[in-house]
Simulated scan of single mutants.
Amino acid sequence: MQRPLDLDAIQAFVLVADLQSFTRAAEALDSTQSAISLKLKRLEQRLGRRLLERTPRLVRLSSDGQQFLPAARDLLAAHDRAMGQLQQEGGRFSVGISDHVAGIGFAGVLSQVNSYDPGVVIEVRIAPSREVMQQYERGELDAAIVRREPQDNDGELVMEEKIGWFAAPQWQYRAGDTLRVATFSTSCKIRDLALRRLDDSGIPWMEVFIGGGIHAVGAAVSAGLAVSALLHRTAPPDVIEIGARLGLPPLPLAQIVLHSTLQETRCREVLRTLVAALKAA
Rank of each mutant, 00 (worst) to 15 (best):
Q2H: 14
Q2G: 07
Q2S: 13
L5F: 14
D6R: 07
D8Q: 11
Q11D: 06
A12H: 06
F13D: 02
V16A: 06
L19G: 08
S21V: 01
F22Q: 10
F22R: 11
F22I: 03
T23I: 08
R24K: 09
A25Q: 08
E27N: 13
A28D: 02
D30I: 14
T32C: 10
T32W: 12
S34E: 13
I36Y: 08
L43F: 12
R46E: 10
G48T: 04
T55P: 03
R60E: 01
R60L: 01
R60P: 00
G65R: 00
P70E: 07
P70V: 04
A72N: 06
L75K: 03
A78T: 04
A78E: 13
H79G: 00
H79M: 08
H79E: 12
A82C: 00
M83S: 03
M83E: 11
Q87T: 06
Q87C: 00
R92Q: 12
F93V: 00
S98H: 02
H100D: 05
H100G: 05
H100Y: 12
V101K: 02
V101I: 14
A102N: 05
G103P: 03
G105V: 11
V109H: 02
V109N: 03
S111A: 10
N114H: 12
S115H: 11
P118E: 09
V120K: 00
I122H: 05
E123S: 12
E123W: 11
R125P: 00
I126V: 15
E131V: 14
V132E: 11
V132N: 09
M133L: 15
Q134S: 11
Q134D: 13
Y136R: 05
Y136C: 05
E137W: 14
L141S: 01
L141K: 00
A143S: 13
V146F: 10
V146Y: 09
R147V: 14
R148V: 08
Q151A: 10
D152P: 00
N153A: 15
L157V: 14
V158P: 03
I163N: 00
G164Q: 09
G164I: 07
G164R: 08
A168K: 01
Q170E: 15
Q170S: 15
W171S: 04
Q172Y: 02
R174N: 14
T178I: 11
L179T: 02
V181Q: 02
T183Y: 10
F184T: 01
C188P: 01
R191M: 13
R191L: 14
R191K: 09
R197T: 04
R197Q: 13
L198G: 00
S201V: 01
G202M: 04
M206W: 01
F209Q: 09
I210R: 14
I210T: 15
H215Y: 13
A216K: 10
V217S: 10
G218F: 02
V221G: 06
S222Y: 07
V227M: 08
S228R: 07
S228I: 15
S228H: 06
S228Y: 11
P237T: 02
I240E: 15
I242E: 03
I242D: 03
R245H: 09
L246I: 07
G247A: 07
P249F: 06
P250S: 06
P252A: 07
Q255C: 11
Q255Y: 10
I256A: 12
V257N: 08
L258K: 08
H259A: 08
T265P: 01
R266N: 00
R266H: 05
C267H: 09
V270N: 06
L274F: 13
A276M: 04
A277I: 10
L278Y: 06
L278N: 06
A280N: 08
